[in-house]
Design a protein around this nucleic acid. Structure first.
Lengths: 207, 207, 207, 207
DNA sequence: AATGAATGAGCTTTCATTCAT
DNA sequence: GATGAATGAAAGCTCATTCAT
């Protein structure tokens, strides 16, 4: 039968896309980022991927399925970066916060396209797929909240608005993808350092 | 003889939409926010506005023109709020900063739909219209930059990263439109007060 | 707005198709009779009707709607013939039976295409439309049953199997559409006379 | 080396389908009866048969070939029933007529699906295959005509319209497949007895 | 100021079929 | 015997847009 069985739509668990599927995912992501999901043509995507339209349909049962695959691929990359950065540090909330901000910035700069997809195109997921996606996404995304919460509890952070801080840090790092230029003077590490500082300013660490 | 001549596409200056045009703008905005520009049907918009498709074409020469009208309508609302809030305060950078944040928050909360359109759907403007729009938008949007710059020059703000602060403040207030619930416990003023605090934390005002 | 509002799918009552709609109905009927509903292309139908594909979609909201229109047009023709023939005779069951068989034969011979559609393509109606159609069809189609029933009650027909007779008379007249050749030697009236005799043989009239 | 060589398309003679082929034939028949030939998908058929699409293509060279196989399988069943019933009786036209009607009814009731295919889907045969099929079908189908002819010649049947009788008897028995319900009260034998009576009424046997 | 009718291009999707393995 | 991968053609349908009235 078809590869479609192994699609994310069916099992929620992490399935590594095949080489062919990677080609589709990347072509589609380029298109979706350029035009948005609704205005992107699946014909053009197949063309950009260098195969026939039917071949795409052999691997993904429809446009939605492709969108879901891209988004899940994005959160996988995101999770991987968070895990990697956090594995380098200990339990100190300040250290952990800096590490996470570093991961966020790395993601928004080195995976600019993935980054732009997530959050912009989620609204185009049909309810069923949105559920599948949310479940996958939750785990990775609650990290910031728990780090802040821990820091506040332990007295490391003294901010009176932890929830607003969480949202703000997320928003300000997320928006980096909108202006970051890989050919510009700033390296991801430069930016991460500055945004780490800014994030800590918001959280008002115990002096 | 058609109204189209007076459309934004032709003259860049502010033209107040007629009553009829307001109906179209609002119906279209609802649709664009729901589905995105590319996936929205101009037929559905006409239907929601309660008139015939041809009537819409009498007022706007095409879908693009409608998008441009919506976006300009959005920046007009935005500019009006900024002007209003800033007219209440004097020259002190801290006061001005708070006033502007207040305006930003008011816009993102009370004009949620306009807010979501701006920034999400700009990319769907064709080059010619994008130019028209950018010109209109610039003036209003450079306010934050100049306030920060003034504060830094005068020594009122001591941040070493004024540009990152500007971007961060913009991003964190912008993102409010994504989660704000008019039926929730927080009033726009509540939120504005907190985000004013946060913004000042980033800018590190002289103690 | 569009003509679609007046389509049969919306109101169950008899709406006379416009001139344009007649063209579509006849082109579509030709195609459906030739290939069957499922294998007929709506593109080809539009082509045969001599208009663009979109024009067809302006008048009928989809393939189903067109099918329904054709079928209802068919039962309308059928009903008209039955009414006409029965209006010529009195109350005598034998007379009425002959008149109805005459109407059946006339329909199967002079409206061969309509005839072939009805009964062959009803199965392609989606449930909702099938309901609309059945309701329209019922009235006309129960005539034979009631004539036979009356005759049996009054003793004019002595058959022990009135229900099988009903089905048989229906089947044998229906099948005429399959072989009747308008250029052949038999006139519809010839055939009707013979099938009237046969139908009466089945019903075993009181001698 | 493929089985296709032995397919009906190549030799006209009776080839008994293999066990595997029976599975395909039955799955396909179910689909064809449900949707009609043109609207049935060969993919769905393979799925229902529980094998891969390619496996189906190994056994039948295309959709047409499958249709032909089904139809021929149908006439084979039909012929077998006729032979069986007729072998039980002698030369008397009345006896033979009753036996044949019995066979017709048995076929339409116990092989309902085969019955519905034959006659409904023949029109979908391409000319070449239609020829192959007609040749196979003729023999079995001319039985009724010859029995009636014999009876008329010998004076056993006095009908003035033997050809119309033949068509009527065929039509009325054929239509049984449309309403027969295996779970209903009537057994095939019950129905056959009644339709035998009706058929004889049409033929007007010498008293 | 507004409408109904029409159009051509494009959409997503499914089709029957082939072929290397 | 059987499969996965692929393809070109065509399906039904919707799109933004135009134009005579």
């Amino acid at each position: 039968m078809s590869v479609r069985r192994g699609t994310y739509a069916r099992h929620g668990d992490t399935v590594v896309p095949s080489e062919r599927q990677r080609v589709f995912i990347e072509a589609a992501r380029r298109e979706f980022v350029r035009n948005g999901y609704g205005a992107s043509s699946i014909r053009t995507i197949a063309q950009e991927a260098g195969v026939s339209l039917s071949a795409l349909y052999y691997h993904y049962k429809n446009k939605q399925d492709l969108l879901l695959a891209i988004l899940i691929d994005g959160v996988n990359a995101f999770d991987a970066m968070c895990d990697e950065e956090l594995s380098r540090v200990g339990d100190d909330p300040v250290e952990r916060l800096r590490a996470l901000v570093f991961a966020l910035v790395r993601f928004r700069t080195t995976c600019q396209e993935q980054s732009l997809m997530i959050g912009t195109e989620v609204r185009n997921l049909e309810p069923e797929n949105a559920a599948v996606y949310e479940q996958r996404r939750r785990s990775g995304n609650e990290l910031l909240g728990s780090i802040i919460e821990d820091g506040v509890k332990s007295g490391a952070f003294t901010t009176p608005y932890p929830e607003d801080c969480r949202r703000s840090i997320l928003a300000m790092t997320t928006s980096i993808a909108n202006w970051y230029d890989p050919d510009g003077p700033d390296t991801p590490a430069d930016i991460a350092a500055r945004y780490g500082d800014l994030a800590l300013l918001l959280l008002q660490p115990r002096p």
